[in-house]
Amino acid sequence: MRVSLFVTCLVDQFWPEVGTATVEVLRRAGCEVVFDERQTCCAQPAFNTGYRDEARAVAERFIEIYEETDADAIVMPSGSCGAMAHHLPELFRDDAAWLPRAERVAAKTFELGSFLVRELGVEELGARFDGRVTWHDACHGLRDLGIRDEPRRLINAVEGAELVEMNAADSCCGFGGTFSVKHPDISVAILDHKLAELRDKEVDAVVSGDVSCLMQIGGRLQRQGSGIRTLHLAELLASGVEA
């Protein structure tokens, strides 16, 4: 299967290792990976903050790039950007010209973990990670795309990794895009409530499907001097394999 990777702007700029790991994992799952270098952003920051004109401008470009692809699927290491791609038809609801184009692209777009399990039927990827990990359900992947079991199945198939469920794994980390800087106090209060659930779990890493949540969680853990790492699902699935 030919897969076009949308790496997301955050991964591209802040956490390229997640992109590298995503390529590795997709290849191991038998995919041919292509990367369209014209890509930028999925338009979510503007859409979620209420700037619809700006969101449409960026979304149009996203659609233009990906409607041309000859790949079978567009895959991204993010449930949040994946959910945005699925919101595109809503953004162009009243636009007869763009709506069908938005729908076509949305239908081809997948989040990495759910793509592996649902579309490829792959769980075992030969990864090895020695340690206790917990899974944070990123909200948009969970509630917009219905991703709950897939990442857990993938983690359970990682040799050496022990999945420890925290209480309320599906509660928000408080990131919420511009919410995290518009209301930093509330954002951190929500986060601290979430992190309190980790206290006696003795985990080595928090794993999630979105680097945005991981930057929120990791940024706080680091400030608190915690030794708990943050790992993207792709990084976990690519770990312990000799290239």
Binding site: V7, D12, P16, E37, P184, Q216
Partner: peptide, 26 residues
Amino acid sequence: GAWTDARELRPLARRSFRERWKRGEL
């Protein structure tokens, strides 16, 4: 500041993913 008052901000990667891809590192 709104971010860093209570959280560390992950630094920008030295080289972006697209640069790595372009250089054929993958």
